[in-house]
Write a protein that binds this DNA or RNA. Structure first.
Lengths: 238, 238
DNA sequence: CGATGACTTGACTGCTGTCAACGTGCGTGG
DNA sequence: CCACGCACGTTGACAGCAGTCAAGTCATCG
């Protein structure tokens, strides 16, 4: 495995999905800020590290603060078509941990990364003491469900290969925008095979679609470097 | 619109996703059962009724107790390929309400149905008073996320039209099983067009796939009546 | 019984998958 | 420094499956 090109730029806490959960609870009758007790912050994760979420009775909610991950299905019956999605800085991993479920996916770091994590045990303990913390967790999960549904809707209308690729670029662009980074010019951290698996295409068809989109001046694409030139690709909001 | 064939069989509360939330909280320091105050129970919904979830600042979490719904995307840019999924008795509607988001889908009753509902205002009020209630809501949302991811994984490996149809029948079968109903012999409440939209196929291709599956003795299919004959279709678990 | 809509079947086109060859970037080793 | 191997990505040729258009069948309801 080649050495990683480290992405040392952490996403700002204000752009992180766990921000509300991380933000100190200034509760009058407790009078302390509890942030650092709850969330373990900025743990390094080396490229290609496999995060099996929810094994060994240890359940954590992770927030990615730098780097990116790909999600693969645990059902090892089929090695192909196993890529379930991607997560970038500011996004959550292990979102089904709070029901005690093992995550239905395994996350693999696409580059050197950092994560913050909250143990579900800690979360449930704090919940019983601070209703406001519960409400923050509930908003987090509800927002996550909303995102999940919107993303589904984004892809639902895509019939042709080219439409699927456009939907993918739109999704990635949105993730960069949320992270407070450039959402018109960015790097794709994953391989063409991963993208193709995710979209239900072959890597050849994906490659041809990218070539055609380049020819149509809708994007500029050179290897993993992408520039979006067509406003249709960036108008979507989740 | 033709009259509905009413499905008067309610799902048992024990098989409902809201069961935990509905179950009385026997809290010592309150000493009351509060079920009926929180959840409005078994409201009738006529066939073809459109449920716009989260309009007018009214946000509710719904549980279907009888009947079924189809989910369509709100983005009316494309009338085709708009079907996002289906929900059966025992399942949730409006799951992103608790973050104050308008639901990204609209639900339409496929047959006369009944729903229970919990207003988000009630939920947040109770949350601040009863930590155990919060934990139940959190488990509900986390389970919902888990389901959503598992369903995604179920379809991810499906390359051909026939595999998509098999995944669909597997999903529907699972929903009936969860509802405590026969999951090997059942009725499809939605049209072929709805299924085709959902799967990203044309209704012609869907029809041909069903015919082929029948010829291969994997299913018996007569109009909306389905029987699963191949164990591969029923081994999946979410 | 006829009208309407839903579903199925058929013929044909076209897009996507398959298989293969080639090009490119990068690290290793001569 | 360059040659080489390897992995990744692109391009080409061809076949097969799914989409399109059209016709026919079936179910339901007035």
């Amino acid at each position: 495995m080649p050495p990683s090109t480290p992405n040392l730029t952490h996403v700002a806490c204000s752009n992180c999905c766990l921000n509300e959960v991380c933000t100190p609870l200034n509760i009058a009758n407790i009078g302390i800020t509890v942030k650092d007790n709850f969330v373990e912050r900025r743990l390094p994760v080396a490229k290609d590290t496999v995060l099996i979420l929810g094994a060994n009775e240890e359940h954590y909610l992770y927030a990615i603060t730098s780097g990116s991950f790909k999600l693969i299905a645990d059902n090892d019956n089929q090695s192909h078509r196993a890529c379930l999605g991607f997560r970038f800085a500011g996004e959550l991993l292990g979102e089904s941990a709070l029901s005690g479920n093992k995550s239905p996916y395994t996350a693999i770091a696409l580059e050197d990364a950092h994560v913050c994590r909250l143990s579900t045990h800690t979360a449930s303990t704090v919940n019983t003491q601070m209703p406001e913390f519960s409400n923050r967790i509930i908003r987090l999960l509800s927002n996550q469900l909303h995102d999940s549904l919107k993303t589904h809707a984004l892809y639902q209308g895509s019939a042709s290969a080219e439409e699927k690729v456009i939907a993918f670029l739109t999704e990635v662009s949105l993730k960069y925008r949320r992270a407070g980074q450039n959402h018109l010019v960015f790097t794709l951290p994953m391989s063409r095979s991963d993208i193709a698996d995710y979209l239900g295409l072959t890597k050849e068809t994906l490659s041809r679609s990218l070539t055609r989109l380049s020819e149509e001046q809708k994007i500029y694409c050179s290897a993993k470097h992408i520039e979006l030139l067509d406003s249709r690709l960036t108008n979507y909001s989740l």
